[in-house]
Write a protein that binds this DNA or RNA. Structure first.
Lengths: 253, 253
DNA sequence: GTAGCATACTTGTATATACAAGTATAGCGG
DNA sequence: CCGCTATACTTGTATATACAAGTATGCTAC
């Protein structure tokens, strides 16, 4: 075990980032890199205390939050373990479609259908919490997995929150990746529904007539502002949304 | 402010339930009852320390977790506030359809279509993590909102985990409510897809031909066992799933 | 051999304390 | 009247310490 502990990155106590966050990232990296496979026993809290020279309460907070997020499991009296099921939590985490596709070993490609500045309709303005006819950035793109269309993205962006959005080349970086690079959202809202695609959408997704789509609408906030409002349309027969989590904290209302 | 504080329930220090949980419940109750409306400023941590006679770290943990769950918002240097948007987190919390409907002021009614013990098919056995052909309980029900069908429920239950499941009268208590009454799941998995309903489903849901359904499949675990595997089918034009949350902890993988 | 007990190690929770850092306000000086 | 500063109050984080309680293991008594 000491071999593992010896190789820990150093914790910087006077950092912009809290210590418990640094610890979470270290462990997350160990798990996602495969260095600690599913089922692997983690070092005990006391071992981590010695290895990282921080207090046990700080370790405890990091591990508790990782449990809550489903990355690890803890058994009272026994120890902490890497969770068996690599959670597939598209509905909770903000997942970049390109990473998702590449994680499957496939190739991702985006085709930009439209990228312009428009005047917000009543409905869009309402969704973005802006005055009607405000200028907003509009982007429409199709995402392909090995040349098979898998997602249609219709995105509105608040220029006040994201002034340089239109300067990006979104065939190189996905809008989701770019937005996350800029800042971490404070809050988000998801809505999921089943719809029959319009003819145009159906053709872009290369779907047979009569087949349904799964449509995910997401709004994200940063500093009390709606940053972006995006609708993602998936072919119902080629995609499903999923999530798995530990339910420690959640209960019936 | 003291009026509010004076009326706090007592915290029992030697209880089966941890103190921070009790505090969470007290605050949750204040919020959901409407006593503390959206935007209301909560007592500060120090005020709660005095009022409840527990340490600030305990208060802090309770409030931090409530923030994570989206019930309250905290602003560094300012205070804690009841969240503006009553989160509609069907995809995270286990929501009882009857409560959901009644919260809208409508009437809920369930019609039991089938309730029997069957032998698990290969697929069902796999989902339930049981040997093929194990005996499992099977329930099929339709849920109505003011006589309009709104959800089709197809449920398989592990008899080992829920021996008395078949003795219940599910026109009086919904299966979800009964299961939650019995115990809180440790873990759950959700999958969401868009499908065209089979003819039988379409008729039960009083849908027009060609319209899509939203289908949510959920498995829940308790003590390493799959307790139940349920598929909920909603008319695409009458229902959408939604969730809103603070994203403090979540980030791109 | 085996049942039961003692022990060591684990996580879970609670407390007191400390300091950092963000927000609002009162009050002062110009 | 305006702008600055000091101050008080808030949340955010980190620590040391303590005890409770669950799990596994090895030892002892029978």
């Amino acid at each position: 075990m000491s071999a593992i502990l010896d190789s820990f990155d150093n914790i910087s106590k006077a950092a912009p980032e809290p210590i418990y966050q640094q610890i979470k990232k270290i462990i997350q990296q160990r798990v996602t890199s495969g260095e600690w496979p599913a089922g692997q026993k983690l070092p005990s809290e006391n071992e981590l205390v010695s290895a990282l020279a921080v207090s046990r309460m700080t370790i405890n907070r990091a591990l508790r939050e990782l449990t809550q997020e489903g990355l690890i499991k803890r058994v009272h009296g026994l120890g902490s373990f890497v969770a068996e099921v690599p959670r597939h939590a598209s509905l909770i985490e903000l997942q970049d479609i390109a990473l998702e596709i590449e994680a499957d070993g496939k190739r991702h490609r985006a085709r930009i259908l439209s990228q312009e500045t428009i005047s917000a309709s009543v409905e869009i303005a309402r969704q973005m919490e802006l005055p009607t006819a405000s200028r907003v950035y509009y982007l429409c793109a199709a995402h392909y997995q090995d040349d098979l269309p898998i997602q249609l993205e219709t995105r509105y962006v608040n220029p006040a929150a994201m002034p340089e959005f239109m300067d990006q080349d979104f065939s190189r970086i996905t809008p989701t990746a770019y937005l996350l690079q800029q800042f971490k959202p404070d809050e988000m809202e998801h809505r999921v529904r089943a719809v029959i695609p319009r003819r145009e959408e159906r053709e872009l997704l290369a779907m047979q007539s009569g087949q349904p789509c799964l449509q995910l609408t997401r709004r994200t906030w940063h500093q009390q502002q709606v940053v972006t409002h995006v609708t993602l349309t998936y072919p119902g027969d080629r995609y499903e949304l999923g999530a798995r989590y530990a339910t420690n904290e959640y209960q019936l209302r």
